[in-house]
């Protein structure tokens, strides 16, 4: 067998393994994603549950800051091949990512939740309370009304761990380990 064929097969096997690993870890889940009318615009309410794996909790308790990403996407799907086929093309009108960093403060024995974009921080005496607060999305303002057509537009939410924010030595292991590949599926919020 030629060398390039061997290399090709090895890469394919590696990628397949990587993909399987990636798909094996979807632990976060989203509840009650709903949109409500608020003045001229819309706001989003949702609850994201963050059941952390023991590995993540261990890292957190050992002083490793963990970053959570919350993805929001307004998109308009339209079929490319045919109406009855499952696959369609999506045109994204708006998207944003909110990232939070959660870390443990050993002296105060508090969990500090830091909104990375606003630099706003809140302290929690327990991990659970911090995660509950993290997962509670209340009155998140969406883009103005004239940009949104609720009949055709979808608002999707997804949350995941930001592995790339982990310390460098942990990153390669986290990238190929399903214990760190924690993410929620994309969930579509319901329009009012």
């Amino acid at each position: 067998m030629p060398v390039y064929a061997i290399v090709k097969k090895s890469i394919a096997a590696f990628l397949l393994l990587f993909c399987l690993n990636s798909q094996a870890a979807e632990h976060f889940y989203i509840d009650n994603a709903s949109i409500s009318k608020r003045g001229n615009g819309y706001s989003l309410n949702a609850t994201i549950h963050y059941p952390l794996s023991p590995r993540v909790i261990e890292a957190l308790e050992n002083g490793v800051p963990i970053t959570f990403l919350q993805h929001f996407r307004l998109s308009e799907p339209f079929p490319v091949i045919g109406a009855y086929l499952p696959w369609d093309w999506r045109e994204t009108h708006w998207s944003t990512v909110i990232s939070y960093q959660l870390r443990y403060h050993a002296l105060s024995e508090q969990y500090i939740l830091l909104a990375m974009d606003t630099d706003k921080r809140r302290n929690f005496p327990s991990l659970n309370s911090a995660l509950v607060t993290l997962g509670k999305i209340e009155q998140l303002t969406l883009p103005p009304e004239h940009d949104i057509n609720p009949d055709t537009t979808l608002l999707e939410i997804q949350s995941e761990l930001d592995i790339h924010a982990l310390p460098t030595p942990m990153r390669p292991g986290a990238l190929i380990s399903d214990k760190w590949q924690i993410a929620s599926p994309w969930v579509t919020a319901s329009w009012p």
Binding site: G63, V64, H105, S108, P167, P169, M170, P172, G173
Partner: peptide, 22 residues
């Protein structure tokens, strides 16, 4: 200072194995 040192040391200790592995 105590908090930072303690956290850094603990984090470093926790990262010892991945560090050696990498």
């Amino acid at each position: 200072t105590v908090e930072n040192t303690y956290t850094d040391y603990k984090e470093l200790n926790y990262l010892r194995k991945p560090l050696i592995s990498i």
